[in-house]
Design a binder for these strands. Sequence first.
DNA 1: TTTTATTTTGCAAATGATTTGCAAAATGAG
DNA 2: CTCATTTTGCAAATCATTTGCAAAATAAAA
Lengths: 152, 152
Amino acid sequence: MSQKCQHEHREPVQLCNLTEQLRAKSRKITGPRQAILEVMSQESHPVTTKEIMAALPTGVCDRVTIYRAMHLLETMELVRRFDFGDGTARFELVRGNTEDHHHHLICRTCSVVIELEECFPSDLEKRIARDSGFQRLSHKLEFFGICPKCQP
Amino acid sequence: MSQKCQHEHREPVQLCNLTEQLRAKSRKITGPRQAILEVMSQESHPVTTKEIMAALPTGVCDRVTIYRAMHLLETMELVRRFDFGDGTARFELVRGNTEDHHHHLICRTCSVVIELEECFPSDLEKRIARDSGFQRLSHKLEFFGICPKCQP
DNA sequence: TTTTATTTTGCAAATGATTTGCAAAATGAG
DNA sequence: CTCATTTTGCAAATCATTTGCAAAATAAAA
Ligand SMILES: [Mn+2]
Ligand SMILES: [Mn+2]
Ligand SMILES: [Zn+2]
Ligand SMILES: [Zn+2]
């Protein structure tokens, strides 16, 4: 079945998904949640809760609400969590298929982020699964380096 | 030139390295540091500071000392830091060449760890470097899955 | 629309890992 | 053994994240 949004007016796909998926789980469509998703839809790289907070109009919601929204959206697979190794979680809106994922390249000096298309080769991953007997394999993978601007 | 230890008596390679490298930096060879390395040399997977603390004879040192030792040993490249995504750093003794590294496969249910030989293909990594203009690329990579014992 | 059941939220406080300040203790060179 | 330097323990600070709870918001029911 198609996932097409039923509304007539134009809205980002994510907000439609949000509405529908929230209803399906008897969760509520609230101002904070819409505002958070609005902010995230304008970001092209993973963002921290602190950054979301800063991008939100003053007083929209508490930081705790953002943490709680991230948990919810993560379980709904509308948002994905990343770890750049600095002790702060980052979140990014899932834009394509839920099954897709991607990785990042981060500058060790200025922290600029590049979105990557390359992924760990699935045949290699299958071999790891076969050799170990593990099932449902997934991976966390991020690259680090020195970006052109930061090179000596 | 060979890295062979000059001492006559038998000691784990790491402790020799420690002694020599510490001298070279005018840092001191202390009881806590030797004890911590002793514990780590008996572990085959990355360990947390809490686990090191627990494995150490009571009263050998404070948890803070372990944190400080990990920082020092990490800069000396005698120890490597890993992140299994649970908010606690893990450390493992570097056993082979300093340039080598490896990754892990962790059970999402029971947390059992498998040491892996597979690594991200270097030709692919070189392509990422070339396409992005980044230099000195490195990567963080860990796999997750369900181990044979935890499978339904 | 009003009522009612349920979910959310804000705020304060708790948790947990890690870091820092500082004076006392340990180490190693001479 | 003495002295300069590095380390350590302990308490307190930081920081991200979580939790408890009563008040506020939302959506289903009447
Ligand atoms: Mn991304
Ligand atoms: Mn390992
Ligand atoms: Zn991937
Ligand atoms: Zn690798």
